[in-house]
Computed example of a mutant assay.
Amino acid sequence: MSSFTYVEPPESHPEIPLVGGDVTEGVVRVGDTVRRPVGPNAPLVHALLRHLEEVGFAGAPRFLGIDATGREVLTFVPGEVAGRPRPGWIADEERLASVGRLVRDYDEAVAGFVMPEGVRPTFGFSSPPGLPPAPPYPAEVVGHMDYTPDNIVFRDGAAAALIDFDIAKPVARVEEAFNAMLYWAPLGDPADADPLLREVDVPRRCRILADAYGMSDADRSRLVEVAVLRTRRSWFSMKQIAEEQGGGWARMWEEGVGDQIKRREAWLERNGTAIDAALTTP
C-alpha cells in the first residue's frame, strides 16, 4: 500500500458538496475530511502541506493521502468563509488586518520550505504567446497566491486558516502582499468590486494590510509596479487557461474576466500614486 493511500475509518459518512470557489469542482466533505480532485500542481501542494504540518503551522489543512477514488484527502478546516453573496463583514477593517497577519504567518512558516527534487509548479496550461514580463524580484517563498475571500477561513472574527493551495508557486513576498490586496482592498475598478466594497477607501485598506503583514519599505515602494505587471500577465494567462482547460476558467472568461482585468490595469495606472503614498508615508 502506498504511504499516500488514505485508509478510510470504519464508520461511513455521507458526501456533502462544498461550494464557493470559481473553478474547482467536485469538492465534498466526508466526516472530518475534504475530498478534492487531484490537480496538476499536486506534487508541490502535497509537499508544501506536509512542510506546514511539520513546522506546526495551524492555519492550513493537513494532507492525509489519496482515497480509493483517486481524490486528495485533507482535514476539514472549521470556521466561516465569505461565500456569495458576500457577508456584511467583508469590509470590516479588523478582519482585514487579520488577513494581513495570516498571510505574514504563512510566509514565515513556509520560508524554510525547499521544493523536493524534480517538483516544480505546474498549472496544466502552456505559456501564452506575448506574455508580458514578470516582476523582476527574486522568489523568497512558495506563496499561496490565491487569497480570495473564498479561500480564507475565519474564526471568532479573525482570519485563522488558508485553503486551496492549487496555484502555490515561488514568488517574492511583495507578490503575496499584492495578491492579498487584490482581493481584500480590493485593487481594481470599483464597478467590478462587490457592492459592499465599492465605496471603501482602497489606499487606506492597502496600508492596513501592509502594516499587518509587516511589509518592508522596499516592498512597499514596489507594490504598485508589481500590481501592474501581474495584472498585465494575468490577462494572457487567464485567456490561455480558459482556452486549454475550459470548465470554470472558460466560464469566467465568457463572463468578462478579461475585460475586468483590463479595467483593473487602467484603474491602477490612475490610482497608483495614491496607493504608493498610502503605503510609504510614515
Rank of each mutant, 00 (worst) to 15 (best):
Y6W: 15
Y6H: 12
V7L: 14
E15H: 10
P17S: 09
R29T: 03
V30F: 01
A42W: 02
L44S: 07
L49M: 05
H51E: 03
P61D: 13
V73L: 04
V77T: 15
G79H: 10
E80L: 13
P87N: 06
G88W: 00
I90V: 15
D92S: 08
D92T: 05
E93D: 15
E94Q: 14
S98I: 01
G100C: 07
L102T: 02
D107G: 09
A111I: 04
F113G: 05
F113I: 01
P116F: 09
G118R: 06
E140M: 06
V141P: 11
T148Y: 09
P149N: 07
D150L: 01
V153S: 11
F165D: 00
D166R: 02
D166M: 02
P170I: 00
E175H: 08
E176T: 06
M181Q: 09
L182T: 07
Y183A: 07
A185T: 00
D189W: 11
A193H: 15
P195F: 01
L196D: 04
L197S: 08
L197W: 08
V200R: 10
V202R: 14
R205M: 06
L209P: 04
D219Q: 04
M238A: 15
M238T: 13
K239H: 14
K239M: 12
Q245E: 05
W253V: 05
G256I: 03
D259Y: 02
R263F: 11
A266F: 00
R270G: 05
R270M: 04
A274V: 09
I275H: 04
L279R: 13
